[in-house]
């Protein structure tokens, strides 16, 4: 067996079990681990089954079969990164909505005479406590 295959099998095993361990420890959500696991399994299978690797390489016109392992790993890296970009965009939007809601709520709380900082609830209301709320209502 060629050294690259041993190395490749070892690496995919490590990746697979590290990912499983991360899920177990709550560091990684299952949802975000699927692509990682799929990449580890694909590389593992192609490294163990030499004939499958050779056949697939021949089918795709890849002259040197180990290159196929690189190609597959690279495709998975691209997919994982694309997945991250999508997730970040969704998070960005949700985060914006959350911040806006908080801004509006803070104002509503203030208008109701409560100190949003949570200091002294009795101190927020009277006299000079709330110029924005009272005056703006009157405009």
């Amino acid at each position: 067996m060629q050294y690259f295959r041993i190395f490749s099998i070892l690496c995919s095993f490590i990746v697979f079990f590290v990912i499983i361990d991360f899920i177990r420890r709550g560091l990684l959500k299952e949802k975000y681990s699927l692509l990682w696991l799929a990449s580890a399994v694909s590389i593992l299978v192609l490294s163990i089954k030499e004939r499958l690797l050779d056949k697939t390489a021949a089918l795709l016109g890849v002259g040197y079969p180990p290159t196929l392992l690189f190609m597959i790993a690279f495709i998975f890296v691209i997919l994982i990164m694309l997945h991250f970009s999508v997730v970040i965009s969704i998070l960005h939007e949700k985060n914006k909505i959350l911040a806006q809601e908080m801004t509006l709520l803070k104002n509503a709380v203030k208008q109701a005479g409560i100190d949003p900082a949570g200091g002294n609830p009795a101190g927020g209301n009277p006299a000079g406590g709330n110029p924005a709320g009272g005056a703006a209502r009157g405009l």
């Binding site: 914006k96 911040a99 801004t103 509006l104 104002n107 924005a132 703006a136 405009l139």
Partner: peptide
């Protein structure tokens, strides 16, 4: 702005001009 007696909506951090306008529209 508060000294002028208008309503001031304070974003917790810089969200950018688009989100700022949108907060105004939501209000």
């Amino acid at each position: 702005a508060e000294r002028q007696g208008v309503v001031v909506l304070n974003h917790p951090y810089n969200l950018g001009i688009g989100a700022t306008m949108q907060t105004g529209y939501k209000y």
